[in-house]
Amino acid sequence: MEMFVHDEIPSAEVDRREKVLSSLTDSVRDLVDATIRSTVADDELVAVRDEVDALVARLRVAQLPGPAGVRFNSEGRSWNWGNAVVGRGNAIAPPVLNVHDDDNATAYAEVTLGAAYEGPPGMVHGGVSALLLDQIMGETASGFKRLTMTGTLTLRYCRPLPLGPVRLDARIADENGRKITVAATIGVPGEEAAVEATGLFLIPSWAPIDETEQGWSRSAEG
Rank of each mutant, 00 (worst) to 15 (best):
L31Q: 13
D33N: 09
D33L: 12
A34H: 08
T35R: 15
R37Q: 12
R37C: 13
S38P: 10
V40M: 12
D43K: 10
D43G: 10
V48F: 05
R49Q: 15
D53A: 06
A54L: 12
R58D: 14
R58Q: 09
L59E: 02
V61W: 07
A62V: 15
L64T: 04
G66Y: 09
P67T: 01
V70H: 12
G76K: 14
G76V: 13
S78E: 02
S78M: 03
N83M: 02
N83A: 11
A84C: 08
V85L: 06
G89S: 06
A91W: 06
I92L: 15
V99M: 04
H100W: 10
N104L: 11
A109P: 02
A109V: 07
E118C: 06
E118Q: 14
G119L: 05
G119W: 09
P121M: 14
M123C: 12
H125K: 11
A130I: 07
L132M: 09
I136M: 10
I136H: 07
G138N: 03
E139K: 13
T140S: 06
G143F: 04
L147K: 08
M149V: 00
M149D: 03
T154C: 00
L161F: 11
L163D: 05
D169Y: 12
D169P: 05
I172W: 01
D174C: 03
E175F: 08
